[in-house]
Design a protein around this nucleic acid. Sequence first.
DNA 1: TGCAATTTCCCGCAAATGGGGGATGGTCTT
DNA 2: AAGACCATCCCCCATTTGCGGGAAATTGCA
Lengths: 205, 205
Amino acid sequence: MIHVAIVEDDRDIRTTLALIIDGSPGFSCQYQYEDCESAVQEIPRIRPDVVLMDINLPGMTGIEGTQKLKAKMPDLDILMLTIKTDNHSVFDSLCAGATGYLLKHTPPTDLLRAIEEVKAGGSPMSAVIARKVLTSFQRTATSPLTQRETEILSRLCDGQTYTTIAEELFVSGHTVRSHIKNIYQKLHVNSRAEAVRKALKDKLI
Amino acid sequence: MIHVAIVEDDRDIRTTLALIIDGSPGFSCQYQYEDCESAVQEIPRIRPDVVLMDINLPGMTGIEGTQKLKAKMPDLDILMLTIKTDNHSVFDSLCAGATGYLLKHTPPTDLLRAIEEVKAGGSPMSAVIARKVLTSFQRTATSPLTQRETEILSRLCDGQTYTTIAEELFVSGHTVRSHIKNIYQKLHVNSRAEAVRKALKDKLI
DNA sequence: TGCAATTTCCCGCAAATGGGGGATGGTCTT
DNA sequence: AAGACCATCCCCCATTTGCGGGAAATTGCA
């Protein structure tokens, strides 16, 4: 028996979901909350197997709630169930510790299957959400840097000094300096720290 | 009609997959390759809708092949179909541009559904793979830094100088230096660049 | 209440960094 | 043959950074 809790402010959706889940064999749904504040308060005592969490809630958002719940119960599985598909909602939810991300138009059978998958150690995601997630792994733009500049940038990220870089590449410090000036210009930064951040964020190395 | 190509060295698996796909209404599978070299050569001419790609191949791996194919055809959808579940295989594949990642034990109906999802703009993933991906978004360890140190670290990442940090936090430059010394000790680094990299990689900010 | 952690402040100094400028030769494309 | 791009080298100089020390005030928790 999988115990499910629901956090959802819309009364119709909440009760419909509860009825579907509670009415399915192997599932139980005895606890529903209409706001995150009470959910964060109560759920640690209830200890459900899976929490269905909306994002758009009055007061505390589902993302903040996820964060707070995961802080208290790191092993709790929280499945976002929302209509929001913007990158912020998706990635903030995942960073906050959500175990999966489903869109509200998910048909009941798929929802039940997803809850089972969560229980089995999986992370169900609507296909369009998964695409967003995968895309974030790929290099977005094509690098404006030359091969040599990329080589040097990666060493900058390692914290090497101009001197050690020059030694290892068998060129003079002046040369390294020149390359770095060009790197900074191309990346529109003017310090090593910014260059490192940009390199990592844009996956330039 | 969705045109599927297969890259898979095992003869039995390859022909079985082809039979299943080609025998299903709405699917066609006329092209199969037993190594990546020929696939990379031929597929740009064939222009299939979806490529099923194994990873363990003689010669060029499926990951390298994915990289090369995506370089030539950025819009091509490549679905990894493999038994490998190690993090390297998973994340390298996704970085190389794979559109989805399925395990070989996926039942035929789910495989066909996944191919359809890819065609519809989705990114099907086996649940256990999805879990790996989601976990990579979450903070792994708990930060060893205090609130103040975290605040300062985030400004270091922005490339602010000690002086501007001090001004904005209404403390002296000496104080900022002190905090930074502690940050470097705790993170086991000794330069700003390394601190920035560690902060971003370990999601400390 | 008392200890530990945190935050704040200070000194001096050597090294590294970043901005400005310019120059040469090689390769590749037009 | 001309121009563009790249990699290499050089100068000066102010600012920033990192390391070595040390110390006081505040906060939080046991």
